[in-house]
Design a binder for these strands. Structure first.
Length: 973
DNA sequence: GCAAGGACGTA
DNA sequence: GTACGTCCTTGCA
């Protein structure tokens, strides 16, 4: 008899740390360890042949919870960190894998796997057989027998080593310096920091082995302790005799576990295809499935993936396709709802654990010299990850100066490194000198630089893009980043923005407000002027808070299937945006200044005209005063009121009045237009030119928009005018730098194409495939007019309907847009749905989904939440319905361009094209390239943009990108 | 000095 | 009918 005992828990942990954890299944669940585990089980059956072939087999796991060792020594394994988030969901899966291979999976409450293994090994030996323990855990070495009846086998794959390595007497002696029967004696003395076995302080393996080889056992050693010559050693032993004895009990494996299955129950069973393949298919393990199908002579296609473990959402099938697929998806969702229970529970437990840790500002450290900084760097390298934050003199990372850095390696363990605090009164030259007690900024940055560049150390920021931008200006590159702001965005959307809001919500503590430190308004100071001690408390708390939020939010990623979205779309985009912001865009100050004068003059003329027509002066910028003049004083008919009871004076109202012969209305419309262009663009933009770079640097927000779009602010470069002739003059002030040229590339009709894909509308898809004018085609389908020679008004109506569809159409809105009656608009919509019934199905599906789940999704799995979906207010509910129809369309298009942006720079580099991506305007990317290289750049840019959905989603419509080059943005567009 | 509302620029 | 940000006025602190 040969019993093979696999130490399942040890294998998973060792494999997790020994192998790169790259494998995930299609819903983002990490399964690298499960895969390694399955390969190992398969390999064992392949490699253990002849006399090594086992006749009996079992896989043993640790049971969660307390064991008898916790009663002996309360600190046992107390310092062990919680299992890595990626690993937790894999625990139940390895049990399932064991069962799939028709092998008994054994775990027992109150016992460690090691004890169960020891017991079975003894039973096998007593029955006259032998046992092989598949493990490399040193704690098991005590079981090895010199006669070979109990052996160990290490199967963790390592480069350059044979796949299976036997551990016998020699290996044990090498490790402990004693024979296996003395291993527990040595361990009792030297202890084990991993399991927190105390041992005798100051005695290591070497000394312990020497002592045991002389005295045989711990007990005998303690009895003869007085004979030991070395003073220190003798005293340590005598003082810690109790610890040594307790340690021995801790490391001694119990061989008397009351096992439930007796050894006959462990006889090897043949693999059963109907057991095996459903699991392997659910895990999406193609290679091993293929190998086993050959071996078992079974066809895996005959089996369905086990619904309990299969992926929730297949990318490309998210959103709506047709009723049948939606149904099967719902079924899968249910199924994984169960299989994800462990990950959900883990996330909740982490939240509870972290929330319970109190904040202690008095524990924060201030790093004032190189020695202290080196200690922190060493600790960070040990930990492998660090929450970090930059403190600066302002909100704009293109102008703010670095004042300090904070680091946290665990909740409550945090430090501040002050670098640029100044004293004295600020003068016009930027303030007083540096305060004492700070490291030289260059020296400190040189010390932390390798840390930030080290890909094996994860840097956790809150809004990494800001800090990456600051650090880049100090020549510090950052690799391997997590971002609590983006984690929160992927999980909850733009619900929480600031760290204070996140802290308040998840930890019940908002943290110190920056206003308390620097004040606000006129009396506001910069962080550089804050006292170091005060700044330290704030900054260290920020890093501490970031670390806590990361520990709360990161596990939710797996539990809520958002890992792929976060890791492949949101997180990698941040450094791309940081570079775009850093590059800025060149604008021609002279053009804007000339336009400013022109607009001001023309506006003044309209102003004078307005006073004349109104027969009084008033503030043209005041809708209130205007409304009173038009509707009260002049007594015009048909005025409507806004929700606050004020007269409505929007452009559409004034336009109406103008047509009815009210010249004042036209004058106001024209004045407002010019005034808008002047105040928002020609006057404001030059003030944004950065002195250092001579360019305008916008700030993108990656976490503000419900649907996944970006937004742009300070200044907003996503709403530069284009529709009117005056507006385009402003656009022409965005110019390429000397020797360069601008390339503008925009997606053609991306949202309608996305709609055609998700709602699966064949007529629309065909039209795009054939390159038809989509609005004319719609008009022709709806009104039965041939495309050739179609009246422009008919096409205009169809265009409005197409846009209306994307916006979640209502008869009311369409009527408003087209200036027709509600009845007529309703008829249009009815006709449209008759011609494209799939669209109606899509809309109903989204309405149903949002009501049921409170969210809808993009084709890449981005979730868009609508907490209002069940509102009792009918108009609020109608709004949610329209928005939930629009969100998957707008959001999927936004995901596509995000993916294009992430891939753009590597692809341009690969093609050896020197092109700088400067701006994104939702469906358009603007680049600056050396003059003459535009014709080489454009094909690459188009290829990346057009293929951006692949391979995650195979779109069923062609994507078209139009690109042009010119010296300014107006002509390139 | 700040928040809300109205208006208007973009996709 | 969707999604944003900015400027200006108004009203209140």
């Amino acid at each position: 008899m040969h019993l093979l005992l696999v130490d399942g828990s040890a294998y998973i942990f060792r494999a997790f740390h020994a192998l790169p954890q790259l494998n995930r299944k299609s819903d983002g669940l990490p399964v690298g360890c499960v895969q390694g585990f399955c390969s190992m089980l398969y390999k064992l059956t392949e490699d253990l042949k002849g006399e090594d072939a086992p006749t009996h087999m079992a896989v043993i796991f640790d049971h969660s919870g307390k064991t008898f060792r916790d009663d002996i020594y309360t600190e046992y394994k107390a310092q062990r960190p919680p299992a890595p988030v990626e690993l937790v969901p894999q625990f139940p899966l390895t049990r399932a894998a064991t069962r799939a291979f028709s092998i008994p999976s054994i775990e027992m409450e109150g016992w460690e796997a090691d004890d169960i293994i020891a017991t079975y090994a003894r039973l096998a030996r007593e029955a006259g057989g032998k046992a092989t323990i598949v493990s490399s855990d040193k704690d098991m070495m005590q079981l090895i027998e010199p006669d070979g009846s109990i052996r160990m086998l290490d199967t963790i794959a390592r480069p350059g080593q044979p796949p299976l390595r036997w551990i016998g007497m020699d290996e044990v002696f090498k490790k402990f310096g004693v024979t296996p029967d003395k291993v527990i004696e040595v361990q009792a003395l030297c202890g084990d920091s991993v399991d927190n076995v105390p041992g005798v302080p100051g005695i290591g393996v070497k000394t312990a082995a020497e002592l045991i080889n002389t005295y045989g056992t711990v007990e005998n050693l303690l009895e003869h302790a007085d004979e030991i010559k070395q003073n220190a050693r003798r005293e340590k032993l005598k003082a810690n005799a109790d610890l040594a004895l307790v340690s021995k009990r801790l490391v001694t494996l119990s061989q008397d576990v009351p096992v439930e299955l007796d050894i006959d129950a462990l006889i090897r069973q043949p693999m059963e295809p109907s057991n095996l393949f459903p699991f392997l298919k659910a895990m999406e393990f193609a290679t091993i499935t293929k190998r086993l199908s050959g071996k078992l002579e079974a066809n895996p296609d005959d089996f369905e993936a086990d619904p309990e473990y299969a992926a929730t959402a297949v990318p490309g099938a998210v959103g709506f396709d047709n009723a049948a697929r939606a149904e099967s998806r719902a079924a899968r969702h249910e199924a994984t709802g169960r299989s994800n229970a462990a990950t959900v529970a883990h996330a909740a437990a982490e939240h509870a654990r972290v929330r319970a840790i109190p904040f202690k500002p008095e524990d924060y450290e201030i790093i004032r010299d190189a020695a202290a900084l080196q200690r922190w760097i060493d600790a960070i390298e040990m930990t492998g990850h660090v929450a970090t934050d930059t403190e600066t003199t302002g909100l704009d990372n293109q102008t703010a100066d670095l004042v300090g850095l904070s680091f946290s390696i665990a909740p409550g363990t945090s430090a501040y490194l002050p670098l640029g605090h100044t004293d004295g009164e600020a003068d016009i030259f930027g303030g007083g000198g540096l305060v004492e007690g700070q490291m030289d900024i260059r020296l400190a940055l040189d010390m932390v630089k390798p840390l930030f560049a080290d890909p094996s150390i994860l840097k956790i920021f809150h809004n990494a893009k800001y800090d990456i931008g600051i650090l880049a200006r100090y020549d510090v590159a950052v690799k391997s980043v997590d971002d609590t702001l983006l984690l929160s965005y992927a999980l909850d959307g733009p619900q929480f923005n600031t760290m204070g809001e996140l802290g308040e919500h998840w930890l019940g503590f908002a943290g110190q407000s920056i206003k308390d430190l620097i004040g606000s308004g006129k009396k506001q100071i910069t962080f550089a002027q804050v006292k170091i001690e005060d700044g330290a408390r704030y900054a260290a708390e920020d890093a501490d808070m970031t670390m806590r939020l990361w520990q709360v939010l990161k596990p939710r990623l797996v539990a809520e299937n958002m890992t792929t979205l976060y890791e492949t779309i949101d997180r990698p985009l941040a450094p791309v945006l940081a570079r775009m912001e850093g590059r800025g865009v060149n604008i021609d100050r002279a053009i804007l200044s000339r336009l400013s004068g022109e607009f001001a003059q023309r506006a003044a003329a309209f102003e004078a005209q307005a006073y004349e027509l109104a027969e009084q002066t008033f503030n043209l910028g005041s809708p209130k005063q205007l409304g009173e003049i038009l509707f009260d004083k002049m007594g015009l008919e048909g005025g409507t009121k806004t929700k606050t009871g004020a007269w409505s004076t929007g452009a559409d109202v004034l336009e109406d009045l103008a047509l009815k012969g009210v010249p004042l209305a036209r004058t106001i419309v024209d004045w407002r237009q010019l005034n808008k262009l002047r105040s928002t663009y020609t006057d404001a933009l030059p003030a944004y030119i950065n002195e250092r770079t001579g360019r305008v640097h916008t700030t993108y927000s990656q976490h503000s928009v419900l649907t996944g779009r970006l937004s742009s602010n300070d200044p907003n470069l996503q709403n530069i005018p284009v529709r009117t002739e005056d507006g385009r003059k402003i656009r022409s002030a965005f110019v390429a730098a000397p020797g360069k040229i601008l390339v503008s590339a925009d997606y053609s009709q991306i949202e309608l194409r996305v709609l055609a894909h998700i709602a699966d509308i064949q007529a629309l898809k065909d039209a795009f495939e054939e390159g038809l004018d989509i609005h004319a085609m719609t008009a022709s389908e709806m009104f039965g007019v041939p495309v050739e020679g179609m009246p422009s008004d008919i096409r205009r109506r169809a265009k409005a309907i197409n846009f209306g569809i994307i916006y979640g159409i209502s008869a009311f809105g369409l009527a408003n847009q087209l200036g027709i009656g509600r009845g007529e608009a309703g008829d249009y919509i009815k006709t449209y749905f008759e011609r494209f019934p799939g669209i109606k199905d899509y809309m109903e599906e989204q309405r149903r989904k949002v009501k049921e789940d409170g969210h809808v999704s993009t084709i890449f799995g981005r979730r868009i939440n609508f907490p209002n979906a069940k509102s009792h207010n009918p108009s609020e509910r109608a709004f949610v319905e329209r928005a939930s129809i629009n969100a998957p369309i707008q959001g999927s298009a936004a995901d596509i361009i995000r993916r294009a942006m992430i891939r753009m720079e590597p692809e341009l580099n690969k093609a050896r094209i020197d092109a700088d991506m400067l701006l994104q305007v939702h469906d358009e990317l603007i680049f600056e390239v050396p003059l003459g290289t535009e014709s080489a750049a454009i094909p690459v840019i188009k290829r990346v943009m057009e293929g951006a959905a692949e391979p995650a989603v195979r779109l069923t419509v062609p994507i078209q990108v139009d690109a042009n080059a010119a010296g300014n943005w107006d002509e390139a567009h």
